[in-house]
Every structure is written in structure tokens, then in C-alpha cells.
Design a protein around this nucleic acid. Structure first.
Length: 397
DNA sequence: CATCAGTTTCCTGGTT
DNA sequence: GAACCAGGAAACTGAT
């Protein structure tokens, strides 16, 4: 999907969409800042829409129904302060009925489409409903314009890989846990067939209608990384309040017999892992990560990953919180969950807060982070970090 | 191939 | 005692 959009973007939006295409093709580009990607992407996506608003005279025949009447003046068509359409900059899922109509009428105008061919009685829908329509359904309602509307809509709703990945993982924590519970111990013990099962479960998970937009935003490698999610134990808690533990090695606590677990561990050791080799104990003979033949390319840094969770409350989900936004002081609320998320990002299901915090401590030396003495799970951004200050975040959007 | 940055893993000891 | 913090050491990966 992302690749497809990138191609479409390159072809159809050459002038204004090149940045968006570049970002879609390579979401790790530049500073790897998710918020930059979002604002750049959305801004690029909308730039072409900044041409003059639709002809007010168009579609004036729509009837008397208030809910169906198109906004016909420039003031209603555009946000008063910006001069842009009211739907500009908002995600389609959040559009009101009138915004949907504005958007449709804009595309009617833009494509010089014969509005009389459209059954506008079918346009009385909000953005969320609009997003549920398939290409075919839009085609039925809008004829040839349906394809165009579908493409434009899905360009806007597709978020960059990086953000989409995190959001999808967060949003599917529960579903993943259910998937695990559905698996028999035998299945889980067989890492080869389990690979396949995981793939299939993920495919199902992300092809659910209401998750469709999420799957579209998944990063290409996320299915593999989600092996960790798929195998998370139902509930475990650390003292710091973490409520997730996605480490497959912990599955021994719930589903493996001794023999199964030994088999499972054997698989693990076949794979080379990043960092110092793990100490091999008698019963430690391996794990699921064997399935990953290749490590992900160097991408987002840990501190950027943390920062991006912090500055996007919608995907924070109680993982981290600001203690003092101005000072850049933040706290881990669910330390193990953040660690697991980071582990998934790096395709390392054995990531723990212990290890993550070691990496965090290395940032002290580089002044990306500053020490906050006497406070557990609390860190502070240092002078060599960027992109977390409110001004910086606002300037991007 | 060598080097380097950025982790990852392990560990010991200290603190909360 | 568990969880967390601090930081040394070694190893690893991907980039250059």
C-alpha cells in the first residue's frame, strides 16, 4: 500500500507531492522524526488542494435538505483564519458531513466532473462512514470519480510507516493477546509452523475491516517484528507499573511444557543476535527470533523513538508521560511495555527495560539526556536532543 | 576490510 | 527482595 501510494504520488503529484512520496518511500529519511513526517506528509498531500476553492455555483441544485446542501460561500468552504477548506489538515475519519460534502464538491470541481451524474442523496455521510467505503462502492455512488475519490482519500488516510507502525502495535495489543490465547502450546512450540501461523494470524488481524487503514500503514517489516506481540503473555507487571511483557521467553510461564520450551529455545540460538551473545545456560538453547534472517537497517534512534511517543499523545497510551514539558522531563509509566515496543521496532523480542535503560544512560555522556537524580524511571532531554519542545512540535504542523 | 556509532547484553554494586 | 540506577566491558550490526 505504501509503495503503491508512493508510486501514485510520484506520478500524479509531481509538483507538490514529491516530498510526500519521498517520505512514504523512505520514512526514515532526514531526522527520522515522526512528527516531521506527519506534518510534511499531510502538508504535501494537501498542497495541491490549495488551489482556488470549488466554484460556488457548482452543485447548487442539490435540494433543500440542510444536511445535503453544499457550503456555497467561501467563508463556509474555508477555515476563516487560513483560507483553506475546513477539511484541510483534518483526518478524513474526523470530517463532519458538511466537510465530506465540501471535499467531494472540491474534487468534482477539480476533475471538471459532471455533478449531475452523482446521486448526492448518498453523500449524506460523515468522514468515518466515507472511509469505510470500498473503491467499488465509491464507484457505484460517484461513477468514474469514485476511483479518484478513493485514491485521494486513501492518500490522506495513510500515515507514514513509522507512526503507523507504532500506532498499529499499540492498538493491537489486546487482539494479539487473544491470538496468543487461541494458540495451542503445541503450535507455539513448533517454531517453523509457528512462523507460518504467526504470518497468517497477522494477516487476519490486519485485514479486519476496521483495522484496514492500520494495516496499510504498517511498515514492511512489522509482521516479523510482531512475532513478539503475538506471543506476549496475557498479563505481567513490573514494579514500575508496566503492564505488558511481550518476551516470548516468558511463554514458558504459561503455555510450554518443559520439552516444548526446550525445543523452542533451541530454535532461538540458531540466530545471531545483536549485541553481546547471551550467556548460554543448561536449559537455554534457543528462541523464536531465528526466523529473522536479517536485521533491520539502522533507523530511528532510541531517544527519537521515546520522544515521538511523548509528543504524540494519541499513540502514547499511557506508556510515557511528561513530568515537565518545558524542561523536557518525562517518566516511564509502563517501562516494560515501552521496552517491548522498542524491541519490536528493532526486531528483538528479548528487549527489556533493563537493557533499554542502559542505552538511555549512554545518552548522558552525549548530552542527549540529562540525569534526574533520585527519581525512578524519570529522564530529561538534554541539549543535544531536539524536536520535543512545544515550539518545535508546533512549528512542524 | 577496517573503523565507527549506536546499541545490546551481561555484570557488579548501589539505592529505593 | 524486587525493581531500578549506574556504569564498565564486550560483542554485534549497519554504515561509511
Amino acid at each position: 500500500m505504501q509503495r503503491h501510494l508512493a508510486v501514485v504520488g510520484a506520478q500524479e503529484e509531481k509538483e507538490n507531492g514529491e516530498e510526500a512520496s519521498r517520505l512514504l518511500e523512505n520514512p526514515m529519511a532526514g531526522s527520522c522524526e515522526i512528527s516531521n513526517l506527519i506534518s510534511n506528509y499531510i502538508s504535501a498531500m494537501y498542497q495541491q488542494e490549495e488551489s482556488p476553492p470549488p466554484d460556488p455555483d457548482l452543485l447548487t441544485h442539490l435540494g433543500d435538505d440542510d444536511s445535503l446542501s453544499l457550503p456555497l460561500s467561501n467563508t463556509s468552504m474555508t477555515a476563516e483564519t487560513t483560507g483553506k477548506p475546513t477539511w484541510y489538515g483534518e483526518m478524513p475519519h474526523c470530517w463532519s458531513r458538511s466537510q465530506v460534502l465540501e471535499w467531494i464538491s472540491y474534487h468534482v470541481e477539480k476533475n471538471k466532473y459532471d455533478a449531475s451524474a452523482i446521486d448526492f442523496s448518498c453523500c449524506n455521510m460523515d468522514g468515518y462512514t466515507l472511509c469505510q467505503y470500498t473503491r467499488d462502492q465509491l464507484g457505484l455512488i460517484f461513477g468514474p470519480l469514485g476511483d479518484e475519490l478513493y485514491d485521494r482519500l486513501h492518500e490522506i488516510t495513510s500515515v507514514p510507516d513509522e507512526l503507523g507502525w507504532i500506532m498499529s502495535v499499540l492498538r493491537n495489543e489486546d487482539a494479539s493477546q487473544e491470538a496468543l490465547l487461541d494458540s495451542s502450546p503445541l503450535e507455539l512450540a513448533n517454531s517453523c509452523s509457528q512462523d507460518y501461523l504467526d504470518e497468517m494470524k497477522l494477516a487476519n488481524l490486519f485485514s479486519q475491516p476496521d483495522l484496514g487503514y492500520i494495516s496499510g500503514a504498517m511498515s514492511p517489516d512489522s509482521s516479523a517484528s510482531l512475532a513478539g506481540t503475538m506471543s506476549q503473555s496475557p498479563q505481567s507487571q513490573d514494579s514500575g507499573g508496566s503492564d505488558l511483557d511481550l518476551d516470548p521467553t516468558d511463554m514458558k510461564h504459561c503455555t510450554f511444557s518443559d520439552g516444548d520450551y526446550a525445543e523452542y529455545k533451541k530454535e532461538d540460538l540458531k540466530k545471531r543476535k545483536r549485541g553481546r551473545p547471551r550467556k548460554v545456560s543448561k536449559d537455554n538453547t534457543d528462541c523464536l527470533e531465528t526466523k529473522k534472517s536479517k536485521h533491520s537497517p539502522r533507523g530511528i534512534h532510541l531517544w527519537e523513538f521515546i520522544r515521538d511517543i511523548l509528543i504524540h499523545p494519541e499513540m502514547n497510551e499511557g506508556l510515557l508521560k511528561w513530568e515537565d514539558r518545558r524542561e523536557g522531563i518525562f517518566k516511564f509509566l509502563r517501562s516494560e511495555a515501552v521496552a517491548q515496543l522498542w524491541g519490536q521496532k528493532k526486531k528483538n523480542s528479548s528487549m527489556t527495560y533493563e537493557k533499554l535503560s542502559r542505552a538511555m544512560r549512554y545518552y548522558y555522556k552525549r548530552e542527549i539526556l540529562e540525569r534526574v537524580d533520585g527519581r525512578r524511571l524519570v529522564y530529561k532531554f538534554g541539549k543535544n536532543s531536539s524536536g520535543w519542545k512545544e515550539e518545535e512540535v508546533q512549528n512542524r504542523s
